[in-house]
Design a protein around this nucleic acid. Structure first.
Length: 682
DNA sequence: ATGATAACAGTTTTT
DNA sequence: CTGTTATCAT
C-alpha cells in the first residue's frame, strides 16, 4: 500500500483514493495521468480488495492499453489474473463474441477495416464520392440511425441516395457476417440497450470502470459508458479538455466539459502540477490556451526549474526554415543530446517534405511517424485475406481479394461473373466454384483458368486442414504452397514489401509461440484491431504531425508552419478553438526547449504563396520585437475586431503595453482597453 | 486482362 | 508538386 502512494502528490492521491461514485480527473499535459490511473487500479485491487474481474479500464489505442497494462501490473502486488484493460473496440469485440447470438448472428464474424469498408461502398455505388458515403454511414451508425431513418431525415436527393447505399451496405455486411469498426461499439450498445438482463448483468460485472482520454469519446461511447455504469455509477474518467483535438472525427468535447452535469455527485480532481516542461514553456502554453472559451478553468503549474526562453524562428521560406532547424538540431546532437529526444512537429503531413530535405542535406537521421501503417499495406492485407479464407472458405470478401493473387488470369469481368453466378445460386463463391464441374466453369472463364481455379481451391482446402491440425506447421506449408513473395519480387519497391511479408510471418510465429493454444482465427482477430506496431527506437530524431505527437514528450521540440492557413489551418473550415488546442498540445510536448517557426512564403500544392505569421504567436505572448504598429497584421484605428465576451467592436486607438499591444475598443457604446491577443480581427 | 496515360484533388487518424 | 483514380489502348 505504501508503494502505491510513493511519489503521488496530494491531488493524485485524492484521485486514487476515491472509490465509489463518478470521478472526473482533469489531467493537464504532463501531470502524471497514467501514473494516477494505474495507481488507482492497483489501489482498487490491492487495498480495497476489488476483484480484477470487476474492473474495466478503457483506452483508445492499443499502445496506451499496452503501456497501462505494463505499468499497472508492475504496481499490483496481489496475485491475481490481470484486470481487463483494453481499447473500446477490443471490449466490443470480446463482448460480441459472447453475445452477438442474441442478435441472431454467428460469432465467427470477421472485422473489416476502413479500406475494406470503402471497397464495399464503391461496389454498391459509383456515383457519390466513397469517402463521403463512408463517413456518413459512420455518422448514422454512431447516432444509432437505421437506413430507413436516415432516408426519412435526408433533405437532399444525394443524402437519400447515401441512405440507400447504407441500407445495401448493411445487408452486405450481414450476408457475409462482417462487422466494421463502428459495429463493434454500435452492436454492443444495442445489445445492452435492448436487453435489460444483459445490461444488468454486464454492469454488475464491471463495477469499477475507468476511461482514459475521456475528451476523445464520442456520443456513442458516452451512451455506452452510461449503460455500463448504470447499476453503480462508479465511472472514473480521465482527460484534458485542452487536449481535445479529434472533434473532426466525432469526439464530443462536451462529454468532458459537462461530465459533472451528466452524472450526479461528481467528484472532480484537477491535476495541474506539470512534471514535464520548464516554466518558460508552460508560460507560453498557458498564455495561448486561455484564449479558448469552452474549457475547464485550470492552469499548468511548473515544478521544474526554469531553462531557456521559447524561441521564435522567422524565415523567408521553407528552405531557409528547414536549413535553420537542421543546423540547430545538428548542434544539439553534437552537444550530446540523444537524437530520440528531438522532434519536429507540423499541422499537416505535407509540410514534412521540406523538413526532410533539410535533415537529409545535413545528414541527420529521422524517423517519420505516421504514413501508411503496417497492416494497411497491400501485401499484408493480401496475407490476411489468405488467412481469413483459410479459416472461413465462405468469406467471399477476402476470397475476391486473393482469387487473382498471384495472377491467375482472372480480371474484374470474370470475378464479377463468378460472383453473380454464386449469388444466383444462393451459395458462397467458394461453394459455387467447388461444386461446379469443369464444364460449368468453362462457361464463365477460359478453360485454362478453370483448371487453375480448381487447383487453387484444392490448395485452400488442404491449407485449411493443416491449419486445423497445427498452428505451428501451418505457416511453413502456407509459404510452400502460396508464394506471395514471388508476386511482389518484381514490383519496384520490392525489398520493402518482401521485408514486410517476412515481418508478418515473424509476427505470426511470435503470436503462436506466446499463445500456443490459439487458432488462426484468434490471430486474425488480434491483428485487425492492431494498427501501429512498436517502433524500434534508434539514433534518429522524430518528425510527425501534431496529432501523432499527442501523449509523447521530447526534450527539444520544433514546430514548423506556424502561419495563418497552416496553424491555425483555415479559420473557416476548422474550429479555431480546436486549432488552438492543437498548438497547445504541440507546445506541451516539450520538456527543455521549444522553438516555434514561421515563414513569409511557403510552397504548397504546387504553388508558392505569401503567408502571415500565426496569430498564436501573439496569443502566446510571443509578439517579441517583430511587433510593429505599421505591420500589416497589427491593428490600426478603425479596424473591426471581435472579443469572446464583449463581441464585435471597433478599434479607437492603439498603444503598447510591454511586449503586447493594447487596443482601445468601442463595443457597442462601451469603451474598453483590451490586449490585442484577446481579440480576433474581423 | 493489363499496363499506360490523363484528369483530379489536396487537414488532422484510431479502431 | 504529389498520389490516386478513371479511362483508354494494347
Amino acid at each position: 500500500m505504501e508503494e502505491i502512494f510513493e511519489n503521488l502528490n496530494d491531488e493524485q492521491r485524492r484521485a486514487v483514493e476515491h472509490i465509489d461514485g463518478p470521478l472526473l480527473i482533469l489531467a493537464g499535459a504532463g501531470s502524471g495521468k497514467t501514473k494516477t490511473i494505474t495507481s488507482r487500479l492497483a489501489y482498487l485491487l490491492d487495498v480495497v480488495g476489488v476483484s480484477a474481474s470487476n474492473t474495466l479500464t478503457l483506452t483508445f489505442t492499443n499502445k496506451a492499453a499496452k503501456e497501462m497494462r505494463f505499468r499497472a501490473l508492475s504496481l499490483i502486488k496481489q496475485n491475481t489474473y490481470p484486470p481487463l484493460l483494453c481499447t473500446f473496440h477490443k471490449f466490443g469485440l470480446l463482448f460480441l463474441k459472447f453475445n452477438i447470438h442474441l442478435l441472431n448472428r454467428e460469432n465467427n464474424f470477421v472485422v473489416i477495416d476502413s479500406d475494406d469498408k470503402k471497397k464495399i461502398i464503391k461496389k454498391i455505388n459509383s456515383q457519390i464520392a466513397t469517402p463521403l458515403v463512408a463517413s456518413e454511414i459512420s455518422r448514422y451508425k454512431n447516432s444509432i440511425m437505421s437506413p430507413d431513418e436516415a432516408y426519412k431525415q435526408a433533405e437532399f436527393h444525394q443524402y437519400q441516395q447515401i441512405a440507400k447505399i447504407y441500407d445495401e451496405y448493411e445487408r452486405y455486411l450481414q450476408e457475409n457476417n462482417l462487422l466494421d469498426f463502428d459495429d463493434l461499439l454500435v452492436l454492443t450498445y444495442k445489445l445492452l440497450e435492448q436487453n435489460n438482463n444483459l445490461r444488468l448483468q454486464t454492469s454488475n460485472k464491471y463495477k469499477y470502470i475507468m476511461v482514459d482520454e475521456y475528451q476523445d469519446t464520442n456520443e456513442l461511447q458516452y451512451k455506452l459508458l452510461r449503460l455500463l455504469s448504470s447499476e453503480h455509477n462508479n465511472l472514473c474518467v480521465v482527460g484534458d479538455d485542452d487536449q481535445s483535438i479529434y472533434g473532426w472525427r466525432g469526439a464530443h468535447i462536451r462529454n468532458i466539459l459537462e461530465f459533472d452535469k451528466d452524472f450526479d455527485n461528481v467528484n472532480t480532481v484537477t491535476l495541474e502540477n506539470n512534471y514535464r516542461s520548464q516554466p518558460n514553456i508552460l508560460k507560453v502554453a498557458n498564455a495561448l490556451i486561455v484564449h479558448n472559451r469552452s474549457r475547464h478553468n485550470k492552469t499548468l503549474k511548473a515544478t521544474r526549474e526554469n531553462g531557456k526562453e521559447v524561441v521564435t524562428l522567422s524565415s523567408s521560406d521553407e528552405n531557409e526554415e528547414s536549413r535553420k532547424i537542421a543546423k540547430l538540431i545538428k548542434s544539439l546532437i553534437d552537444e550530446g543530446t540523444e537524437a530520440r529526444e528531438i522532434a519536429v512537429l507540423y499541422r499537416i503531413n505535407a509540410l514534412s517534405r521540406s523538413i526532410e530535405d533539410g535533415l537529409n542535406r545535413n545528414g541527420i537521421a529521422y524517423r517519420l511517424v505516421g504514413g501508411l501503417r503496417f497492416y494497411d499495406r497491400a501485401e499484408i492485407k493480401d496475407l490476411i485475406s489468405y488467412f481469413r479464407v483459410i479459416t472461413n472458405l465462405h468469406d467471399d470478401f477476402s476470397l475476391k481479394r486473393i482469387i487473382n493473387k498471384p495472377k491467375r488470369g482472372l480480371g474484374k469481368a470474370s470475378i464479377d461473373k463468378i460472383e453473380s453466378a454464386a449469388f444466383n445460386a444462393q451459395v458462397s463463391i467458394f461453394s459455387f466454384l467447388n461444386d461446379a464441374s469443369l464444364d460449368d466453369l468453362v462457361t464463365l472463364v477460359k478453360k485454362k483458368n478453370a483448371n487453375t481455379i480448381k487447383a487453387f481451391l484444392d490448395e485452400l482446402v488442404y491449407l485449411k486442414k493443416i491449419s486445423e491440425e497445427s498452428s505451428y506447421t501451418f505457416l511453413d506449408k502456407f509459404i510452400e504452397h502460396i508464394d506471395i513473395k514471388k508476386m511482389y519480387a518484381s514490383s519496384p519497391d520490392e525489398s520493402e514489401k518482401v521485408q514486410n511479408i517476412d515481418e508478418f510471418y515473424a509476427l505470426y510465429r511470435d503470436y503462436i509461440k506466446q499463445n500456443p493454444s490459439s487458432t488462426l482465427d484468434d490471430f486474425l482477430n488480434e491483428v485487425t484491431l492492431q494498427s501501429d506496431q512498436d517502433q524500434v527506437e534508434g539514433e534518429s530524431i522524430y518528425i510527425m504531425s501534431i496529432h501523432a505527437s499527442k501523449g509523447l514528450e521530447f526534450k527539444h521540440v520544433f514546430i514548423i508552419g506556424l502561419e495563418e492557413g497552416f496553424l491555425p489551418l483555415n479559420s473557416e473550415g476548422s474550429d479555431l478553438e480546436e486549432e488552438r488546442r492543437l498548438a497547445y498540445v504541440a507546445y506541451t510536448r516539450a520538456k527543455d526547449t521549444l522553438s516555434l517557426s514561421h515563414v513569409n512564403s511557403r510552397y504548397y500544392k504546387g504553388r508558392r504563396s505569401d503567408v502571415d505569421k500565426s496569430r498564436f504567436f501573439n496569443e502566446s505572448g510571443l509578439a517579441g520585437g517583430s511587433l510593429k504598429l505599421e505591420n500589416k497584421s497589427a491593428y490600426k484605428k478603425g479596424d473591426l475586431v471581435r472579443h469572446k465576451i464583449f463581441g464585435a467592436g471597433r478599434v479607437l486607438g492603439v498603444s503598447k503595453a510591454g511586449k503586447e499591444i493594447k487596443l482601445h475598443i468601442n463595443f457597442a457604446g462601451s469603451k474598453r482597453d483590451i490586449l490585442a491577443s484577446f481579440v480576433e480581427k474581423l
